[in-house]
Each structure stands twice: as structure tokens, then as C-alpha cells.
Nucleic acid binder design. Structure first.
Length: 292
DNA sequence: CTTCTTGTTACTGA
DNA sequence: ATCAGTAACAAGAA
């Protein structure tokens, strides 16, 4: 489940290898995941090139040379996997980015590859998705601005201010976790980091935000920044057998304190076990001793 | 076989 | 108009 840190990692990796390279070939293996008319999709992308890759929350936006945008949302199991041509030097022989489950880049495309780009230098970009919730879509600059405008505040920008964060909680009664997961209020947080943020802030995920003190809101604000910053630094969280080109696993997994740790001793207090409940329709992990 | 997994949205009711 | 809660979607794992 790629969230802000995973999608940002993908954005940064791809920006280093696909910008300004002409799209020489384009194959759509599963039309269902392309939300744009097939002919327009091909006609717009063929021989075009990306000039920049943007991210808003979990939504990637590949800016094309003439101002249109290719939107890519990975939803739960989407992947963007890039394979450099064999002529590239050995250190850069393969670059794997994206979620899980893992696919060997030498075996791509596989049965979960739905869209395949080939760039002029032989670089390949595969859009894979096991559950096909993800999509790619072409939009104009205006449409892109409308879509991006509906997202809430971005946690890792200068626009992320305590003052604005506090306003989100005013006149609301929903559980804290459902506010954190609401992309129209705060963008980029998913199920893993929502639990980790609540734990770090020492607040129960199911507490009504109307009952949060100013101090607690500030702790949630700080935890959001700290957790997401570190997760980006560690290139996201991986649960399965994902490895990058250097054979290294996703770096944030060892830092998780509560997610998928139910039944195991709390790493902070070492007194009680992490519990799992359902909040906002999602599996939710917390320490009953550390969080109030 | 059933149950669980999650990002987002449609829908319902207040 | 706004907010909150739930179901639905897909398909694989257990």
C-alpha cells in the first residue's frame, strides 16, 4: 500500500531516469486500468516525453512536454518498475521502485503488467497492479489543477502549518484516524503511517477529535512530520520480498512500532501487548498503555 | 469454504 | 450544505 513516502520515493527515482526521453513505444495490456480513450492515450504519449514528475498525496503526475499530465495512482498494489537498458553501466543495471508483491525485473512484463512504456534509449517503465485498483489517466493542465486542488494540506511542505492543522479538527467529531486518512484534509497518509503517527503522538486512533487537547493536536502534527520525513529518508515501508537494485530491502520496516505488531510486546513501555481493533473500517494497531 | 487485506468513492442518513 | 459511517470494489493469502 504505497503511501506518501513510498510514492515520493518512486517519484524521485523515476525523475532521475525517464525525464526528456522520447516515448518510442507504448503497450496497453489491460485497457481497464487506462481511464483515457485508447486512441487519445496513444496519440498523446507516442513520441512525447516527460519534463517533470509531481506528487500530491499519493497521486503521481507526469508532466508532458506540451502541458498535459499523465496521472498515475497505485492504490493498494500498483507498482511502477523501471528497467534501464543493458548498455547502462552495471551499477545502474536495474532500478526497482514501487510496492509489493515483488516481481523480478528480468521477468517483466508479467501477467500483472498492464501498461508498458519503452523510451528511446531502451529504458522500460512497467505499470503493474495485482488487484487493478490503480489507474493511469491523461488530463489537461486545468483538469490536473482541479484534481490536485481538492487534496488537503501536504505534510512535507512549507504549507504544513500547525495553525492550518488545528483548523482541520475544529467542528469535527470523527475519530482521529479517519481524519488522518481523509485525503481532502491531509494528503498522503494511509493505514500504516496513520497508526504509527497516533502511537508516536500517544493518542488513541479512535478518539473523537473533538476531545483532543491543543497539546495533543500539536503532538499529532509533529508526529506526522517526523514519521513521514523518516519514512521518506528510509525509502518507504516494505512487507514482502521487495528489494531494490542493490538488493536492499525497504528501509522503514524496522522502525514500525505498532503496525502489524498486534499480540507482541509494546517496544516503548515493554509492559503490554499491542492490540488490534477496527477504526474507520480499517485494521488499527495501538498500545493501550502508551496511548490515551 | 470463509475471512482478511486497503485507497478511494458512492451512498445513506443525520 | 456539511459531516460521519458503511459498503463496495479486486483478488490473493491464510
Amino acid at each position: 500500500m504505497p503511501e506518501l513516502p513510498e510514492v515520493e520515493t518512486i517519484r524521485r527515482d523515476l525523475e532521475r531516469v525517464i525525464l526528456h526521453k522520447q516515448i518510442a513505444d507504448l503497450e496497453i495490456h489491460l485497457g481497464r486500468v487506462v481511464k483515457t480513450d485508447f486512441l487519445r492515450f496513444i496519440a498523446t504519449l507516442q513520441d512525447n516525453h516527460f519534463v517533470r514528475i509531481h506528487r500530491t498525496g499519493k497521486l503521481l503526475q507526469f508532466e508532458l512536454a506540451h502541458g498535459e499530465f499523465l496521472l498515475v495512482h497505485l492504490k493498494m498494489t500498483g507498482q511502477l518498475i523501471c528497467r534501464l537498458p543493458e548498455s547502462a553501466n552495471a551499477l545502474n543495471a536495474g532500478l526497482i521502485v514501487g510496492g509489493h508483491p515483488m516481481a523480478s525485473i528480468d521477468e517483466l512484463p508479467n501477467k500483472y503488467t498492464h501498461v508498458e512504456f519503452t523510451f528511446e534509449d531502451g529504458t522500460k517503465l512497467f505499470f503493474n497492479d495485482v488487484r487493478t485498483f490503480g489507474y493511469v489517466e491523461l488530463v489537461s493542465a486545468e483538469e490536473r489543477a482541479d484534481i490536485v486542488g481538492k487534496f488537503g494540506i501536504e505534510p512535507l511542505t512549507q504549507n504544513f502549518l500547525l495553525e492550518d492543522f488545528e483548523k482541520i479538527f475544529q467542528k469535527r467529531t470523527a475519530p482521529l484516524k479517519s481524519i488522518l486518512l481523509n485525503q481532502q484534509l491531509v494528503s498522503g497518509i494511509g493505514n500504516i503511517y496513520a497508526d504509527e503517527i497516533c502511537f508516536r503522538a500517544k493518542v488513541m486512533p479512535d478518539i473523537s477529535v473533538s476531545k483532543l487537547s491543543k497539546q495533543e493536536i500539536k503532538r499529532v502534527f509533529n508526529a506526522t512530520q517526523n514519521i513521514l520525513e523518516k519514512a521518506v529518508l528510509k525509502r518507504g515501508t516494505t512487507f514482502s520480498d521487495y528489494v531494490d537494485a542493490q538488493g536492499k530491502k525497504g528501509g522503514y520496516l524496522p522502525y514500525l512500532k505498532v503496525y502489524q505488531r498486534d499480540g507482541r510486546l509494546c517496544l516503548r513501555c515493554e509492559e503490554v501487548k499491542i492490540q488490534k481493533i477496527r477504526v474507520a473500517g480499517r485494521g488499527t494497531h495501538f498500545c493501550p498503555n502508551c496511548q490515551r
